[in-house]
Design a protein around this nucleic acid. Structure first.
Lengths: 346, 346
DNA sequence: GTTAGCACTCCTCTTTGGTGAGTGCTAAAA
DNA sequence: TTTTAGCACTCACCAAAGAGGAGTGCTAAC
């Protein structure tokens, strides 16, 4: 009780043992269990005393008086920051990841979708990802396809293989050839611009100088802008919900509902993950550290993936606070790397 | 016990009352409840006798000896086929549907996505939809966009606003102008063809007669073919899962898991719904009538939507067998109509 | 044919007591 | 001073038992 940091080696061992065991069994861990299962060379009584200290310092708590101990969020935090020896993804996992991601090239979104699926399968938790904000992207190509005289399909391609499309209805019919001309005109003007630069001035300039019908132009510009800004909905990818329901903490229906609600609503989660996009390395946030109430009893392990030095998006897993952090961190790190790798060739 | 069809008016009334009440309360319905709540002018004893008959004929059953009655699948079937007075979607619902679907034009998929969302919200059940098989579609346009010298983004547009895209990696660099030429060449050859006609012969012909590098051509054809066949995954749209969890029958976690499993796996559900695509009108399948075991205790109400007389896809709801069939049928019908309507202008 | 009455069934909810895992405290041993 | 054995105590968990109640089937009267 003298030291400021009252963590000695033995306490660390015990905290590690309790956490490991609880992660494994989901049952409160008693002193006898520790003494028996982890050969620390001390008796259960000693462990009991140490555990009482650990509880007083807030690393452990008892669900009720005569139960074993469970790590608190603070305990998990200490475990992750100090006690955990980082567990790299196994050779086998890596091979699977490489294989699935390297399979074939395709637009960004599907790639991330596949990554999310693998991650969910390997971790047995929910895996989520956000795909890049379009605002960071560069305008690449606009294609106008005539569906019939009054309907035009506009396909907009921006930098790393993102494709958006929308049907435009015009009262004034256009011939395919005209559309061709308009497309190429706009393409020349816009190609290579950052989407966020597609602001008033440039658009106005085009509007004034161009031989395009006002109506249609307005419409097109609106689409280019709006369809790129698009709703958040599109940007969240999620897989493996079923896994989490296998966990004993989700035998409680209300908790399940809360979680599914969050996933179905999407925007909250998107905002949260987008907010994490600019931190580097693997980020772990545990239980109460999460601001959103739906996540108060869950943990998030996330990492960022890049394209050409620029952050693209976030990918990670959501699991119970009783998460297998070592493995989760290793895998999230690996998948973010793999994703970044694949994207390099884009 | 003389009549072949032993359903008299009174029995019908009672079956309707039991079903209505059970749909409402999710509790087995007793004879006294019927007597009290539905003024049929007969005593509970009489109702009891009738209910015993109805049970013997298989329309009702008792969960246990001293409980009230619950409709069997056969009971629901009779209820839907005979007793239900079709309940049209209310003016208010219609307005909402029109408003949401009419909002703005865009590619098919997003439109159906919105329809599914509305349907889920109005019914409070799970809403699902499949979007059209690409195989029925007509090839419309191919666009090759150069991302960098070695990567080409191929965007394929088929008939009713479906867009597929894929990145092609080539060892041999192409200039944008070359791609332009290739695109237009292929477009001329392929435009207007049914996707299912894009088979060996035509492709072979193109291959022989064209001035395009073999490598790239192979790759392109493969993409046109494969990306249109694509995985089933893309085709299922689903919304409102949360609603169903509010239903008392889903307080049982295992059932919830079964359901979510089916939705997450997708293909089974897709196959099922695709199989329904060619029946006309609103189709109701109840409990055991469904072949998939995950749906044995659920009901499906589906309808088809059309484009130009051709069936496009299926949309509907999944709910407990204790579903509010009247409302569900009305709404599914309405949304399929609305969808067909909006698509008319495509 | 209908209804009142009644015995009977069986689910549901609550209570009770036993069991066991785990604790904290104390005093003895190291 | 630290560690350990011993012991009384706590409390969740479970099974058994009992009360209550909703609903039934059957019988006999209307």
């Amino acid at each position: 009780m003298i030291a400021v940091n009252n963590m000695n080696e033995r306490k660390k061992c015990i905290l590690r043992a309790v956490t490991d065991d609880y992660i494994d069994t989901a049952e409160p861990v008693g002193s006898r269990t520790i003494a028996r299962r982890y050969k620390l060379g001390i008796s259960s009584a000693t462990i009991r005393n140490e555990m009482a200290d650990l509880e007083e310092s807030g690393y452990l708590y008892q669900p009720h008086t005569s139960a074993g101990r469970v790590p608190s969020d603070k305990g998990y935090r200490y475990y992750v920051d100090v006690l955990l020896d980082p567990e790299e993804a196994t050779e086998e996992d890596n091979k699977l990841i490489q294989q699935i991601l390297g399979q074939q090239k395709e637009a960004m979104e599907k790639l991330v979708r596949r990554a999310t699926k693998v991650l969910a399968e390997l971790t047995d938790y929910i895996s989520v990802a956000v795909i890049p904000e379009h605002r960071n992207a560069t305008f690449r190509h606009l294609q106008l396809v005539s569906l019939d005289p009054n309907n035009i399909l506009a396909v907009v391609v921006v930098d790393p293989g993102i494709v958006e499309n929308k049907v435009i209805f015009t009262t004034k019919p256009f011939l395919p050839a005209e559309l061709e001309r308009i497309s190429s005109h706009l393409n020349n003007k816009l190609r290579g611009l950052k989407v966020e630069e597609l602001s008033g001035t440039i658009l106005a300039e085009i509007r004034d100088s161009s031989p395009i019908t006002k109506d249609l132009l307005e419409c097109l510009l609106e689409i280019i802008d709006e369809s790129l800004a698009d709703t958040d909905e599109e940007k969240l990818i999620c897989d493996g919900v079923l896994h989490l329901l296998e966990q004993p903490e989700f035998h409680d229906i209300d908790r399940t509902k809360l979680l599914l609600g969050m996933i179905e609503k999407r925007n909250n989660l998107v905002n949260l993950l987008s907010g994490l996009t600019y931190s580097s390395g693997v980020k772990v946030s545990i239980g109460e550290e999460n601001l959103r109430p739906e996540l108060k009893e869950l943990s998030l392990v996330t990492a960022t993936y890049y394209l050409g030095g620029q952050t693209m998006g976030t990918i990670g897993v959501i699991g119970p606070t009783r998460m297998s952090y070592g493995r989760a961190i290793g895998l999230v790190e690996e998948i973010a790397h793999a994703l970044t790798d694949v994207l390099k060739s884009y």
